[in-house]
Design a protein around this nucleic acid. Structure first.
Lengths: 103, 103
DNA sequence: TCAAATGGTAAGTTACTACTTACCGTAAGT
DNA sequence: ACTTACGGTAAGTAGTAACTTACCATTTGA
């Protein structure tokens, strides 16, 4: 809950966004993930670490392979954060609009 | 719509998150905004430019003052993006779970 | 037990980000 | 016109982020 911040940073990078797009289609091991991208496999590993720390992906080892998948909890935390934001912002704008019509 | 990416980058920075939190409570001119933060006024101006480019804030000039406020459209674009993500991710995880139970 | 497959980590480089101070432009009040 | 208030922009700097290559660790099949 504290660190939606890290999640937003994570989604801000275009490469990580691509990684998440691909994982949203289906879970995948690191190598296969890297094969579809322009950056090296170690770079993908580093991005996956960041995504993992942000709570956006998890993985399971199958033999030597690490199969990564999206963690819906992380996505949901961001949605919740934005929803709260949305409510407060709308309320504040309503108040501001009323005050302006006073003057 | 294309650049939710910039919006995520924008929300990733803690100072910008604070700025948005304050603007979510009420619209405010730059000076007042900067007074509540630890960074300088020019820094706040720079952050506001980034937030504006990301579609998260707008402003209106009143005399020499620039009163900034949250732009709900920007927030909503992020929510929409995450919602689509959410749906695809859940569908993919369901498929993956079924395939695992086959083997 | 050796070789191959898979992927994480270390070290180094380049590019970008957030910040500062200094400066400039514009609107309002005197 | 002159001054004050308010903010945006420029230039420079320190720290961080994304990437590369090289290397190491672990599991599996021959």
């Amino acid at each position: 809950m504290a660190n939606t911040s890290r999640a937003f940073v994570a989604l801000g990078d275009p490469t990580r966004q691509l990684i998440l797009e691909r994982l949203a289609k289906r879970p995948m091991p690191v190598g296969k993930l890297a094969a579809g991208l322009t950056v090296s496999r170690p770079a993908v590993s580093q991005h996956l670490k960041i995504l993992g720390d942000a709570g956006l992906v998890t993985y399971a080892k199958h033999g030597t392979a690490s199969v990564y998948r999206i963690d819906p909890k992380g996505i949901d935390a961001m949605r919740t954060y934005l929803d709260r934001f949305w409510d407060r912002a709308l309320a504040a704008l309503k108040v501001a609009a009323e005050q302006e019509s006073d003057s």
